[in-house]
Simulated scan of single mutants.
Amino acid sequence: MERLFKVTAIIMLLTSMSIKAQQDKNPNVFLITLDGVRWQDVFTGMDTNLLNSDYTENKELLTSKFMGSSLEENRKLLMPFFWNTIAKEGQLHGNRTKGSKVDLTNKMLFSYPGYNEILTGKADDENIDSNDKNYNKNSTILETANMSNGYKGKVAAFGSWDVFPFIINDKRSGVPVNAGYMDASGDLNEKEKFLNEIQRQAPIVWESVRLDVFTHHFAKEYVKKNHPKLVYISYGETDDFAHGGLFDFYMKSLQNTDALIADLWSFVQNDPIYKDNTYFIITTDHGRGEGIEEGSKWTGHGSDVKGAEHTWLAILGPDVKAIGEVSNGQLYTNQIAPTVAKILNLKIDAEVMPGNPLELN
């Protein structure tokens, strides 16, 4: 009897290991958003009109950091990971000067509707017309994955903005969400305990949006411990600095966010579970004004701001055709969630997510 018990235990262990190994072979996706970052900033670098406007406090410093001898050099100085890595190994869509367009399908053109469209694959102007903390009635791709057999308990979300528990509907979806000034919970390592301790000791610039460095490291520590298969990370500083008319901080924050994404990619490519089996899909929830004149102010966005519907998209991963900066073509934000579903081999209802998945290879 004892021998039979031991044999049974060994079989169960081997079966468990086999299932885990198979799960680890399934692709991983990191969906990342940068709040309110314009396509112009990504593809053309620092805006000289804004540099020379009242929105800039230290023109000399920004010039020394972000101005080179060409447009290509300028954008590389601002976002080196995008232009040294993604442009060589992945795809960048949304440079409208080259005929590549990425647009929202929602008509609100601000954050909650934008994130809903990214995460659910469908605009919902009828029900989502504010940034209020209302639980989303729509199911996100995070929820869809978490309800599936292959990805249940392997989904997590992190955001700087404190509305994300409502957008993702953490109560219904079961997706763990750490956003705003929420502490990490559960069996914490020393770094997570330290982050909990210091995130409110650092300057609190906005009560509803914490500094991105905390969001990043909460996410990274969780990923290192738990190796989720689908991770959503939303960096938020850029939009709030822009709303405040702080062009200096907006530029520095955008460069810093690029570095945080680079740090995450470096970790992924050096982790045996994630290496060569992980996709990064990076985008924004909305555009913003194109200039300094009333009606097109860079500080704002929304249905009354020209250009706020224009966004961009970056993709990096094992089966992504390395075509770099794309010329010509029209993509829409509602295609992102179906693309995640396709990568993860999740079955979705075309009526629920009507956008077509992107052709990655």
Score class of each variant (00 low, 15 high):
residue 217 H to D: 13
residue 349 D to L: 09
residue 38 R to Q: 12
residue 57 E to K: 14
residue 60 E to P: 04
residue 239 D to S: 09
residue 221 E to Q: 15
residue 24 D to E: 15
residue 263 D to V: 03
residue 187 D to S: 12
residue 235 Y to P: 01
residue 156 A to F: 03
residue 205 V to Y: 06
residue 93 H to R: 06
residue 319 D to R: 10
residue 15 T to Q: 05
residue 224 K to R: 15
residue 293 E to N: 13
residue 24 D to Y: 08
residue 173 S to Y: 05
residue 52 N to T: 14
residue 236 G to P: 02
residue 307 G to E: 04
residue 265 W to M: 04
residue 183 D to E: 13
residue 13 L to T: 14
residue 85 T to Y: 11
residue 315 I to P: 00
residue 127 N to S: 14
residue 168 I to E: 00
residue 116 N to V: 13
residue 159 G to N: 08
residue 13 L to N: 10
residue 268 V to E: 03
residue 20 K to S: 13
residue 33 T to K: 00
residue 32 I to T: 03
residue 226 N to T: 12
residue 135 Y to I: 10
residue 318 P to G: 06
residue 34 L to M: 12
residue 204 I to Y: 06
residue 204 I to F: 08
residue 354 P to Y: 05
residue 351 E to Q: 11
residue 68 G to W: 06
residue 273 I to E: 03
residue 35 D to Y: 06
residue 63 T to V: 12
residue 353 M to G: 04
residue 219 A to H: 01
residue 89 E to W: 13
residue 293 E to G: 09
residue 168 I to T: 01
residue 208 S to C: 12
residue 84 N to P: 06
residue 163 V to G: 01
residue 328 N to I: 11
residue 274 Y to I: 08
residue 253 S to F: 09
residue 257 T to H: 06
residue 122 K to W: 03
residue 269 Q to C: 07
residue 166 F to T: 03
residue 47 D to V: 05
residue 157 A to F: 03
residue 61 L to N: 14
residue 132 D to C: 12
residue 160 S to E: 04
residue 269 Q to F: 10
residue 43 F to W: 04
residue 250 Y to P: 00
residue 272 P to W: 03
residue 135 Y to N: 12
residue 208 S to P: 01
